[in-house]
Amino acid sequence: MSRAARFLGLLLCAHALPSMAQVSNAGTIQVSSDGAVGQPGKAAYASDARLSNVAVAARVDPDAYILGAAWLQPALQRDQLRLRAGIVYELGAIRRQALAQGDMPLGETSAAFQAWISARPITGRRTSVTLDPSRLEVTPAEDWPVHDGDTLFYPRRPMDIRVVGAVEKACHLPHVSLQDARHYLATCPASAAADPDLIYVVQPDGAVFTQNIALWNRDLPRPLAPGAWIYVPFDRHAITGAADETFNHDVADFIATQLLSDEGWR
Rank of each mutant, 00 (worst) to 15 (best):
F247M: 00
F209K: 14
A14T: 12
D34W: 08
V164R: 11
A119V: 01
W71D: 02
V31F: 00
A181K: 07
A193Y: 00
A43P: 04
Y154G: 04
I117M: 08
Y89H: 14
V54F: 00
G107R: 09
D180P: 04
P189D: 10
A170L: 15
Q39H: 12
L51I: 07
A181P: 06
V146Y: 02
C13A: 15
D148Y: 05
L260M: 07
A55Y: 09
R6T: 10
A112M: 08
T130P: 02
N248G: 00
A186P: 03
V56C: 10
W144G: 08
A5M: 06
M1K: 15
F153D: 02
G35P: 09
I239Q: 08
T246V: 11
I213S: 12
A64F: 10
D219C: 04
Y231H: 13
G227C: 04
P223I: 14
K42I: 15
A93Q: 08
P196V: 10
H237G: 12
L198W: 07
I239G: 06
Y231I: 08
D143N: 15
W116G: 05
S32Y: 05
V163W: 08
L17Y: 13
D148C: 07
R50P: 07
I117K: 05
E245W: 13
M104T: 10
T109C: 00
S2H: 10
R162W: 09
D48N: 12
E108T: 07
S128I: 09
G264I: 01
P189V: 09
G9T: 13
A43M: 10
A93P: 04
A58Q: 03
S177T: 14
L152Y: 01
L185K: 03
S24I: 12
Q77N: 03
E137T: 14
I230M: 01
Y89R: 15
S118L: 02
I213F: 11
G206F: 09
G92D: 04
L67N: 04
W265L: 13
D180N: 08
Q22D: 14
V201T: 06
Y200T: 00
R156T: 08
I213G: 09
A21V: 14
P221K: 02
P121D: 04
H237A: 15
L259A: 01
S110H: 08
G206N: 07
P158N: 08
T240E: 15
S177E: 12
D160F: 09
A242N: 00
L136C: 05
T139D: 13
D61P: 11
P145Y: 00
A21H: 14
L131V: 06
S24N: 13
Q101M: 10
R135C: 01
V138N: 10
S32G: 09
S47K: 14
H147I: 05
A46S: 11
V146R: 00
I199K: 04
A4I: 10
R162D: 13
A64Y: 03
A166L: 07
D143M: 07
E108Y: 07
Q80T: 01
H249T: 15
S33F: 07
W265N: 13
P189Q: 06
S33H: 06
S33K: 05
Q101A: 14
D262A: 12
V129W: 03
A14R: 08
L215Y: 03
Y45S: 10
A55C: 11
